[in-house]
Design a protein around this nucleic acid. Structure first.
Lengths: 130, 130
DNA sequence: ACCTCATTTGCGAACTATTCGCAAAAATCC
DNA sequence: GGATTTTTGCGAATAGTTCGCAAATGAGGT
């Protein structure tokens, strides 16, 4: 049955390079615009399909923004960490904080709640934007 | 100019009662279905408008779910707290943890990052679902 | 380089969630 | 109850995302 190959194509390389070049959560539309700006014409459908694929592979993290529009960013899922997001420029900095992990662990017994995951996001202004 | 009154109407009461009865994040569509199930016929438009209004008043919290669909829950914004969300039933329990606040505060100097807010969500199984 | 075949792409249509405009209905106040 | 303002319902419009299918492209063998 379905032998599933994994072709290397221009659109996929282009999309990956857009994602690789900025530490920000980008919407499909923003990525599409970024591609146009570089002269790479790729359909929006392909952008969406490629993002789905990258997410399935675990190469990117998806996150609906405040308005519900889904945004994506390159992000190693293996190393567990959290994000600090600049309210001004959107730059995302990784926060790899052992103490925080430890703290989250200590909440397992919380309210009879069997904790199996958590998400933490910090907001503020990054060094450059202050 | 626009004297802005604030009428008390059936639809608004019904919608509020739907929200009041369950400690879960509900989408506009789910609220609309809940209304139908109770025999209250209210248009989806009104559900959206009422939710916008409640959010503006600060009575409810909005949160896009994993798929980007926006969900709403009654939630006092005054008392700062976080949420523990059951993966099985969606029940939300408030986590009012002073120690966590304190911890978040201690991160203000993080990476030259001027911290002005944060969001924390815990996931797991609530007591009833275990 | 060429052929074959599976995979991927682009396009436009379809879908879903949400918003908007406007006339009819309901709430408030006197 | 009547006048006035707000709210509602409806259907159309919009925005983000998904889907179907024919044409284009990548991979591998010759």
């Amino acid at each position: 049955m379905g032998i599933r190959a994994d072709y290397v194509t221009r659109p996929r390389e282009w999309i990956a390079s857009i994602l690789a070049r900025e530490p920000r959560f980008l919407s499909a539309a923003q990525i599409h615009q970024g591609l146009e700006r570089v002269g790479a014409r790729v359909s929006l459908s392909t952008v969406y399909r490629t993002l789905d694929r990258l997410q399935a592979k675990g190469d990117i993290t998806a996150r609906p923004d405040a308005d519900g529009e889904v945004t994506y960013m390159l992000c190693e899922p293996s190393r567990h960490h959290h994000h600090a997001i600049c309210r001004a420029c959107g730059r995302v900095e990784d926060v790899d904080c052992a103490a925080m992990e430890q703290f989250a662990e200590s909440l397992r017994a919380l309210n009879g709640f069997e904790l199996d995951g958590h998400a933490i996001e910090f907001f503020g202004k990054c060094g450059a934007c202050r």
